[in-house]
Design a protein around this nucleic acid. Structure first.
Lengths: 213, 213
DNA sequence: GCATTAATAAAACGAACGTTCAATTAATTC
DNA sequence: GAATTAATTGAACGTTCGTTTTATTAATGC
């Protein structure tokens, strides 16, 4: 009825984060109770408060780190000084890969925004806007260069992001389509959607997929 | 401290539905309390139970009627025996119009599925699948007729629906773009995405928008 | 105008919620 | 091996939740 043998703060905190992402994705933030989360980790509810001062702090931490991860992944994948088609292809590939790999966390970050305080909501939205701006810049550069046909940059960016993020709704690993197949399909749909001019082989930055217009 | 002057069951029930859609869209189903809903309607919580036996019954009723409305709207708008381009254009126009008009209800139907019992979830998903199947059939017919270029019918249908439904996330009435402009943009993005062969004027079933490839 | 029905209020129910606190034990430090 | 720190338990706090019950008043039918 106190500290248990083999208990380790770092391991417990990691287990709490992992269980929280999974439970919130499945039940929703409001529907998940701290007792439920604690039971999943194999600990009493009071122990959670050693790592996160409140339930909302836990949610915010998960969201912030997810958004930071997304921005970092794009920073690492972004091709500098490349043509718009190559950059757009890299954006799509990174987005799909990241979201399939972290389906649950994406679900949480997209669906539970209303449970954040105003200040924290603003913080998360700022990161999201920064990420979306990257896509808008690619589309604008492409439109100005005449390689994309885009009515409205902002609208197109939102449509593309909604389309790509939607992959987490229906995609299940090990199902009919492989990740590579899904990525290739989304890539060609994206290129057609923006009316990309065919440019032989430029859109193969990672070697994973070719653009089929 | 009992029946109030001018009270009317039908009006109260309608007010409850309306307030519930708005509150659930804003706060989430779990976060909305029955007392909060009652206060919005101007009534005590106990009065709600005259119209809906449980909170979940209320949610389910809202969702079922929303899905029925969607299917009915498509039934009315669907052009019989038309070419795939015309049918796809009608699908897109109906989808965008319906979802912009009923943003809050769509939000509820899409976000609160996990709060339904298994049986009721199945019931809602059955309706949704039927609606999605209509799009898959259009895409398949178009692909077979050679007027669409589609890798995978199922994947493309999901991508399109996610893209179109996403309009409720960012669109606000009275903002920069009008409904007609948004619809026209989504229509041309859709036609490009499916690689529709240019067919002079066929894609103008409602007269509201022309397809610009 | 009297009986009946419709619509609500007021109060209460037990259960579950997020969170706090004191006590207790394991691991670590010296 | 004693002192200190880290990790956790168990019990409790006040609050809020969905829901039920009973009483009360407005509208309706005859």
């Amino acid at each position: 009825m106190a500290r248990t043998t083999g208990s380790d703060g770092e391991k417990t905190e990691a287990a709490v984060r992992e269980a929280a992402v999974s439970l919130i994705a499945r039940l929703g933030y409001e529907a998940m109770s701290m007792r439920q989360l604690a039971a999943e980790v194999g600990v009493q509810a009071a122990a959670l408060y050693r790592y996160f001062p409140t339930k909302e702090d836990l949610l915010f931490t998960l969201m912030r780190e997810h958004m930071e991860g997304l921005l970092e992944a794009w920073s690492a994948a972004r091709p500098a000084n490349a043509d718009p088609v190559t950059r757009l292809a890299a954006y799509v590939e990174n987005h799909i890969a990241f979201h399939i790999e972290r389906r649950h966390a994406t679900h949480v970050s997209n669906m539970e925004l209303r449970s954040l305080s105003h200040e924290r909501l603003t913080q998360i939205l700022k990161m999201r806007t920064a990420y979306e701006k990257e896509l808008r810049m690619i589309l604008r550069d492409g439109a100005e260069a005449g390689v994309f046909q885009v009515d409205d940059t902002g609208l197109t960016a939102m449509a593309l992001i909604q389309m790509m993020t939607g992959v987490i709704v229906w995609f299940r690993p090990g199902a009919r389509l492989s990740i590579a197949e899904v990525t290739a399909s989304y890539l060609s749909m994206t290129m057609r959607l923006v009316g990309a001019t065919i440019s032989h082989g430029t859109a193969r930055p990672s070697g994973r997929a070719a653009v089929a217009l």
